[in-house]
């Protein structure tokens, strides 16, 4: 599985773990060489990096085969747990009441499941083009039917702020060139000028226009740039996973 898909799966997993265990205040994932892969919004890059460095040093100095299955450091009010799963370290900060065994078990069930789902989705997407049912033509309700049959793709929310917001509309999201290409490939000459953005956990949807992400830095990273107004109506913020579906017109 490619890195983008892997990170998407990890992101979904950490969101689900955090939703299931409300005692978790922070969660992030380090790879085998303790590089930061992904983190939740409440974790700062600085803290994640400092912990990663400390873990790297511990592994290097003490564990010859590099196998730490779990590690729990408990302070008076909080605990920091490290759980190894699928060659990554899942780091969680919790209250002392939270049960680290539950978190470790949940991680070991959820993460492989999410990765497997992402893999299956990836392989389905490759086969999908000739097999996808044609969108049902209707004038009354193109949105609902399209959202039922259009393939959804998951992306990570990125802010659309600063100079970007001046050059774009506050009701327009920015998506990857590859995604637009994929939609064109699937729907041929059919007009697609709008898409639905869906918050995965709540199922809340917003219909909006879309345009290409500007600047190569954000291209190909599984990101969708969403203006603040749309983010607040969906109840999402930077780092949240959302689903995008094209609205195919007649």
């Amino acid at each position: 599985m490619d890195t983008k898909a892997n990170i998407l799966a990890l992101n979904t997993a950490i969101t689900e773990i955090k939703n299931t265990c409300p005692g978790i205040s922070n969660i992030f994932v380090l790879d085998e060489s303790t590089q930061l892969l992904t983190k939740d919004n409440s974790t700062t890059e600085e803290i994640a990096t400092s912990i990663a460095k400390a873990l790297a040093s511990l592994i290097e100095q003490t564990v010859t085969d590099g196998r730490i299955e779990t590690l729990t450091c408990q302070g008076p009010d909080r605990k920091v747990n490290f759980t190894r799963c699928v060659d990554n370290y899942f780091v969680t900060m919790t209250s002392t009441e939270a049960d680290e065994k539950t978190i470790a078990n949940l991680t070991r069930i959820l993460v492989p499941t999410m990765i497997k789902l992402q893999e299956e989705k990836g392989s389905l997407r490759c086969k999908q083009v000739p097999e996808t049912p044609e969108p049902i033509k209707t004038r009354q309700a193109p949105l609902d039917l399209a959202s039922l049959i259009s393939p959804a793709t998951e992306f990570i929310v990125e802010n659309l702020s600063g100079l970007s917001i001046i050059s774009g509309s506050p009701d327009t999201i920015r998506v990857d060139r590859a995604l637009i290409g994929q939609w064109k490939e699937m729907y041929g000459d059919r007009k697609i000028s709008e898409a639905t953005v869906e918050e995965i956990a709540t199922g809340k949807k917003v219909r909006c226009k879309f345009e290409l992400i500007k600047g190569s830095k954000l291209e190909g990273k599984g990101l969708v740039q969403i203006p603040d107004r749309i983010q607040s109506s969906l109840g999402v913020k930077k780092g949240t996973l959302v689903r995008l579906r094209p609205i195919v017109e007649d």
């Binding site: 803290i47 400092s50 912990i51 400390a54 873990l55 040093s57 511990l58 100095q61 003490t62 564990v63 085969d65 196998r67 730490i68 299955e69 779990t70 590690l71 729990t72 450091c73 408990q74 302070g75 008076p76 009010d77 909080r78 920091v80 900060m93 002392t96």
Partner: peptide
Amino acid sequence: SQLANFSKQVLNLHEEDFVRSVVLEGK
């Protein structure tokens, strides 16, 4: 000794000034 130092370092980042316990599980 390394675990004691590590846990102190990690918990200090979260403003925990005292280490109650550390549990490390290997294979």
